[in-house]
C-alpha cells in the first residue's frame, strides 16, 4: 500500500496535481456551502462555461489563458449575481442563456483557430496531469487569498447566507459580501477549470457541501466537513484514476457522488432510527 503511494507521488506531475487539486477543492467546498444555501449553485456552473469561452478566445489570440479568463469570469460573476438578485428574466433561465452563449462562442473560436478539437477536450474535461510549476504557484497564491478572506469574513458570510434581509436591516453591507462571494467563486472556478474542465468544475462547489449537510447540523461543522470531504474525495479520486487509468476529473466527481449517496443513506437510516427510538422513549414535546 505504502509502496503504491510512494510510486504514485514519485512523479512530479502527480505531486503538482495533488497540491493544486487539494487547494482548489478546499476553496470550492467552503464557498459551495454559502452558494448552495443561497440557491446560487447554478452561478458556479454558469461561470465555468463563461470561463471556457474566455480560455478559447485567449488561446486563439495567443494570450496568457488566465490573464484573460480571470477578469472575464469575475465580470461575469458580478453580472450573474445581479441577475439572480433582481432579474426581470428568471435567474436560472438568465444564467443558462449567458453560459450557453459563452460556450458557443468558445466552440466557434476554437474551431476557427486550430481546426482540431484536442484543445476543446482539455478545456471541457480538464487536464490535471499537465499542470506546470507556474500553475502550482498561482493556485497556491489565489487559494491563500480565497481562504484568508473566507476566514476573516466567516461570520458575515454566515449572516448574509442565513438571512440577508436581517443582515441588511442591521447595517451589514450584504451587497458587498455577496460581491465578495462572487469574486472568490470566480477565482476558484477559473483555477479549478484547468484541472476539472468547464463541464465538471461546478461539482467541486456543490457536492462536498451537500454531502456534509446530510450529517452536519451547524454551519461551522458543515463548512469544516465540506472541506474535509472535498480533500478526501479528491485524494481518493486522484489515486483511483492513476491506478485504474481513468480520467482524473471525472473520477473525482464519481467519488464525490458515491460519498454523497453513502451519506444520504446514513442520514436516512439515522432519521428512521431516531424516529422509532423517540417514539418509544420520549413523550412528544
Amino acid at each position: 500500500m505504502l509502496n503504491f503511494f510512494t510510486e504514485i507521488f514519485s512523479f512530479p506531475f502527480m505531486v503538482r496535481a495533488l497540491v493544486v487539486g487539494v487547494l482548489v477543492s478546499v476553496c470550492a467546498a467552503l464557498l459551495g456551502v454559502s452558494l448552495v444555501l443561497k440557491r446560487y449553485s447554478m452561478i458556479g456552473d454558469g461561470l465555468s462555461h463563461v470561463g471556457f469561452g474566455a480560455l478559447a478566445i485567449a488561446s486563439a489570440v495567443n494570450a496568457a489563458p488566465l490573464a484573460v479568463a480571470i477578469p472575464v469570469v469575475v465580470v461575469a460573476a458580478f453580472l450573474l449575481l445581479r441577475i439572480s438578485e433582481n432579474g426581470k428574466i428568471k435567474g436560472d433561465a438568465a444564467i443558462a442563456l449567458i453560459s450557453t452563449s459563452a460556450m458557443a462562442i468558445g466552440v466557434v473560436v476554437v474551431s476557427q483557430a486550430s481546426g482540431t478539437n484536442t484543445d476543446i477536450n482539455n478545456y471541457l474535461f480538464g487536464s490535471i496531469l499537465s499542470l506546470k510549476d507556474g500553475d502550482v504557484v498561482l493556485s497556491a497564491a489565489l487559494s491563500a487569498v480565497v481562504l484568508t478572506l473566507f476566514a476573516l469574513f466567516y461570520n458575515q458570510l454566515f449572516a448574509v447566507t442565513f438571512d440577508e434581509s436581517f443582515a441588511r436591516a442591521t447595517g451589514l453591507r450584504a451587497g458587498a459580501y455577496n460581491a465578495l462571494l462572487a469574486l472568490l467563486t470566480a477565482l476558484t472556478i477559473v483555477l479549478g477549470m484547468r484541472m476539472m474542465g468547464a463541464l465538471l468544475i461546478s461539482s467541486l462547489v456543490i457536492f462536498p457541501s451537500l454531502t456534509a449537510m446530510r450529517l452536519c447540523k451547524r454551519f461551522l461543522t458543515v463548512t469544516i466537513g465540506a472541506g474535509v470531504i472535498a480533500v478526501s474525495c479528491f485524494f481518493t479520486g486522484l489515486t483511483v484514476s492513476f491506478a485504474a487509468e481513468t480520467p482524473t476529473g471525472a473520477t473525482v466527481v464519481l467519488v464525490n457522488g458515491a460519498l454523497f449517496l453513502v451519506f444520504s443513506l446514513i442520514s436516512l437510516l439515522k432519521r428512521r432510527l431516531g424516529k422509532t427510538s423517540e417514539h418509544f422513549h420520549k413523550p412528544s414535546v
Binding site: D163, F166, A167, T170, K217, R218, F219, L220, V222
Partner: peptide, 28 residues
C-alpha cells in the same frame, strides 16, 4: 434596529446551530 423578518422557505431547512443564529445578531 432589531428586526424579525418573515421566515423564508430556505431558512427552515438551514443547517445552523441556535447559538450561531443568535450570535449573528451582534454583527451589525
Amino acid at each position: 434596529i432589531g428586526y424579525l423578518p418573515q421566515q423564508t422557505a430556505a431558512q427552515k431547512d438551514f443547517p445552523a446551530g441556535v447559538f450561531e443564529v443568535v450570535l449573528s445578531g451582534r454583527l451589525g
